[in-house]
Amino acid sequence: MTFKPLHDRVVVRRVDSETKTTGGIIIPDTAAEKPQQGEVIAVGPGARDETGKLVPLDVKAGDKVLFGKWSGTEVKIDGQDLLIMKESDILGVIEK
């Protein structure tokens, strides 16, 4: 199955969180926070402005992004845990 988001929506897969601290302490799953970084899987065509003109999104599939702690709606598609959020919920693109 493929999923294509509408308008200015973005589908993001969270990256795996670290299970150890820098000091070597192992963090159990119950105490670990959900990561706020992810990889963009799919993007919608864009939003429309007041005149009806399509404004394309700034992110694209494959981008590594940082998003807010409570951003997006969690969904499960083809057994994968994904987030669907508006582009405005994305704080920035992580570049290497």
Score class of each variant (00 low, 15 high):
residue 92 G to F: 07
residue 12 V to W: 01
residue 7 H to R: 14
residue 40 V to M: 11
residue 60 K to T: 06
residue 77 I to W: 00
residue 74 E to S: 10
residue 31 A to R: 14
residue 54 L to G: 05
residue 93 V to N: 04
residue 23 G to P: 03
residue 41 I to R: 12
residue 66 L to N: 00
residue 55 V to L: 11
residue 18 E to H: 07
residue 40 V to I: 12
residue 80 Q to S: 04
residue 13 R to C: 09
residue 40 V to S: 08
residue 37 Q to G: 04
residue 32 A to T: 05
residue 4 K to C: 06
residue 67 F to P: 05
residue 24 G to C: 06
residue 23 G to L: 14
residue 62 G to D: 01
residue 66 L to A: 09
residue 19 T to C: 05
residue 87 E to Y: 13
residue 46 G to T: 10
residue 27 I to L: 11
residue 52 G to S: 08
residue 62 G to L: 06
residue 53 K to H: 14
residue 26 I to N: 06
residue 47 A to C: 10
residue 70 W to H: 09
residue 19 T to S: 03
residue 29 D to W: 10
residue 3 F to T: 12
residue 44 G to E: 09
residue 5 P to F: 15
residue 82 L to H: 03
residue 36 Q to H: 01
residue 21 T to K: 10
residue 78 D to P: 02
residue 96 K to Q: 10
residue 17 S to P: 02
residue 62 G to P: 10
residue 66 L to V: 06
residue 11 V to H: 07
residue 54 L to C: 07
residue 58 D to Y: 09
residue 90 I to F: 07
residue 63 D to I: 14
residue 11 V to Q: 04
residue 78 D to I: 00
residue 31 A to L: 15
residue 22 T to V: 04
residue 67 F to N: 07
residue 40 V to L: 12
residue 55 V to T: 11
residue 48 R to E: 05
residue 16 D to A: 02
residue 35 P to C: 07
residue 46 G to Q: 12
residue 47 A to N: 09
residue 92 G to T: 06
residue 7 H to Q: 11
residue 79 G to S: 07
residue 83 L to V: 07
residue 93 V to E: 04
residue 33 E to Y: 12
residue 35 P to R: 03
residue 8 D to N: 15
residue 79 G to C: 03
residue 36 Q to Y: 00
residue 60 K to P: 00
residue 41 I to H: 12
residue 50 E to H: 15
residue 9 R to K: 08
residue 11 V to A: 01
residue 35 P to M: 12
residue 48 R to P: 07
residue 61 A to K: 15
residue 56 P to Q: 11
residue 7 H to S: 14
residue 23 G to R: 11
residue 50 E to V: 13
residue 66 L to D: 00
residue 91 L to Y: 01
residue 89 D to M: 09
residue 53 K to G: 13
residue 57 L to Y: 14
residue 49 D to K: 13
residue 61 A to V: 08
residue 76 K to L: 13
residue 44 G to T: 11
residue 13 R to Y: 09
residue 87 E to Q: 15
residue 45 P to G: 08
residue 78 D to H: 01
residue 61 A to F: 10
residue 6 L to G: 12
residue 33 E to P: 00
residue 64 K to P: 02
residue 95 E to D: 02
residue 27 I to C: 03
residue 88 S to R: 15
residue 1 M to H: 08
residue 4 K to V: 15
residue 85 M to I: 05
residue 60 K to W: 05
residue 74 E to G: 06
residue 66 L to I: 00
residue 64 K to V: 01
residue 15 V to L: 04
residue 77 I to H: 02
residue 75 V to S: 02
residue 57 L to D: 13
residue 68 G to C: 07
residue 28 P to H: 09
residue 45 P to K: 11
residue 20 K to L: 01
residue 85 M to W: 06
residue 9 R to P: 01
residue 8 D to M: 13
residue 55 V to P: 03
residue 26 I to G: 04
residue 73 T to R: 15
residue 28 P to K: 12
residue 12 V to C: 05
residue 71 S to W: 05
residue 25 I to H: 13
residue 1 M to V: 03
residue 46 G to Y: 14
residue 10 V to L: 13
residue 67 F to I: 08
residue 20 K to Q: 00
residue 8 D to F: 12
residue 41 I to E: 02
residue 14 R to G: 04
residue 76 K to G: 09
residue 12 V to K: 00
residue 30 T to D: 09
